[in-house]
Every structure is written in C-alpha cells, then in structure tokens.
Simulated assay, not measured.
Amino acid sequence: MESYYLFSSGKLERKDNVIRLTRQDGKFKDLKIELTRDIYLFGEVSLNTKCLNYLAQKKIPLHVFNYYGNYSGSFYPRECNVSGELLINQVRTNLDENKRLQLAQKFVLGASQNILRNLKYYQRRKRNVSEQIKTITALMKDIDRTSAVDVLMGIEGEIHRNYYSAWEDIFEQKTDFISRVRRPPDNMINTLISFLNMMMYSSCLSEIYVSQLNPTISYLHSVSERRFSLCLDLSEIFKPLVVDRLIFSLVNKKIVSKDSFEQGSNGCYMKKATILKVTKAYDEYLRKTIMHRTLRRKVSYRHLIRLECYKLIKDLMGEQEYMPFKIWW
C-alpha cells in the first residue's frame, strides 16, 4: 500500500476504476486505487462527490493542505472496522479519571523515553546536551506521581521545553531556533516542526482508520481540543523517531537551509520546492524498516504506528497492559 502526495493543481476525479488527477496542462496521472493507502493534496485541486464516494467505497482517507503547507482537514471515510464493545470501552476508559490518567501517563512516558534516546545519541557525538538529559530524567520521575491530566500536560510541556533548548547544539548550522513558536511559526525550524507534525497527525489518522479505534476519543489530549484527538496522543510517541530525527537530518545534511523558506504575513513558510523535498523525505523515512524484537521480522516505521493502535486496543479490551513504543536502536 502506498501514500500519494499530489502537488499539481487540476481536477481529481473517478475515471472508470481509477482515481485520475488531470493537471491544468491536460496531462494526467492515474492512481492505483487498489494499492492506495491514503492521499495528500497540496495543490489547488477540484473534486466532486463522485470522487469522494469512490474514495469512501475503497476506504481511502484524503488529507488536504493549503498553499503554505498547513493542514486544512481530512476526508475520513465511513468506518468499516467497527466494534461496539471497543467503542464502549474507549468511552468508559476516558470517563474513568484513574484509567484515563494511567494511559495518558504512558503516552508521556513513551514520548519522553524516545526524546532521551535522541539526546543521548547526540551526547555520544560530543554535543552539549548533558544538562537537558539530566533535567528531563528528573522530570520523568514525576510522571507517575501526577494526580490529574492537566498536571501531566504541564510536565510534558516542561520536558519539551528542555528538549527544544538542546536543538541549537544538535544543529550544525545556525538556525535562530530558541523555542517552539506555533501560530505562525517564526523561523525555518518551527516551520519544519509544524509541517511534519501535521504530516505525522495525518499518518496516525490513516493508521487508526484501519484499526477499530475511534479517533475522536483520546486520553492525554482533551476530546474537545481537536476533532481527531487520538492522533495527537499516538503522535507524541512517534514524533521523536520520525519528525525530530528527520529535521536533524534535513538541516545537518544541508538538504534545507534558510534559502528554502520565505518570510511573509503568515510567518515563515516553505517554498513549493521545499514542501516537495521535505514530503519526499518524510515518505522515505516512514518506509524505513527495523527488525521487530517481538514479531522477529522487519517492519516499517509506519507499521509501528499501526502496531501501537493494536497494543492500545488490547489494553482497552482488558487483554494486555499497554506499554508505549520505545526506540531500542
């Protein structure tokens, strides 16, 4: 199964048993619908209900990004893998303050462990990140002691603040990155974080779709904060592995630089060629494989997200306690 990233402007429509993107110059590309996992739209594309109905029939989510590379929304087909029992357990766990807190703590713990793994990697390469490692290690001891999700979110914020303060020592070129700025991002690093975080949210949504989980019911993030808030929970664990490591690689290998970005009224944003370059690198990163310790076979980074969904389902069904994914390599 493949993800399609469409950058050309034109018309997306059903043509017999394929989805066709017809560009403004008349050229077209047919998507192999039976091998399509999801579609990402970056160009100015028009489509009709016939196309959307066909995507729904084939169970293919569609993610839309605007001119600046900001996530606009997703077309989420009618769920086909449904389980009333799982849905009840998802809701019941969310309403049970103790059980919700326990799961939320696991998400923060998994994210923190993976953050430390990144920092220790660069510590071995003589980067000055020892102070951040010490502080984050101390903060992690408070995760299990929290009595409410709001308090836990405060600890999670402090961990990320210390983590980001180490990035300037990780980068091999000057980036002017001091702290996380979101709306709008003010420099190239914040722009990369915002864009790749949104790509990760979309990837998590696509993987949740093939499971029986409901993406609107979450545990760390409030269900009223975002529509698909469970994506935010799961993405916390995988952002250090995919998003952060990819940013370090893009910057240190000089694949992107300040010249790859523009400053405008909407803050700092990527040039069109940069969006294409970063998206290609993201897709290639998700295709990377590792030998899974439990399954004893190679699995892709993307498949690790799906496995995390299944682990969460087992916990919600009372079969096996959920343990967050931890980078071991």
Rank of each mutant, 00 (worst) to 15 (best):
D16K: 14
I143W: 01
S130Y: 07
T22H: 03
R78L: 10
F42H: 10
T216D: 01
R117Q: 11
V242N: 08
S235T: 06
I208Q: 06
L116C: 08
Y5S: 12
G69P: 03
L6I: 15
L230F: 13
N98M: 06
E156F: 12
H303E: 10
P324V: 02
Q24K: 14
K50P: 00
K99E: 15
E236D: 15
R306G: 00
N114S: 07
K106F: 00
F75N: 07
S260C: 08
T191Q: 04
D38L: 00
R296K: 15
G267I: 05
K314G: 00
R145M: 04
A166Q: 03
R14G: 07
N118G: 10
K27I: 03
H221G: 01
Y282D: 02
N214L: 00
N187Q: 12
L304M: 13
P324I: 01
V91Y: 15
P184Q: 05
K277E: 08
I33K: 08
M153R: 15
S112W: 09
D25F: 09
S224Q: 13
G318W: 02
R296E: 15
R100G: 05
Q123V: 01
V129F: 11
K174V: 10
A281C: 12
F75K: 02
L250T: 02
E79I: 06
K253Q: 15
R297I: 09
D283Y: 01
L47T: 15
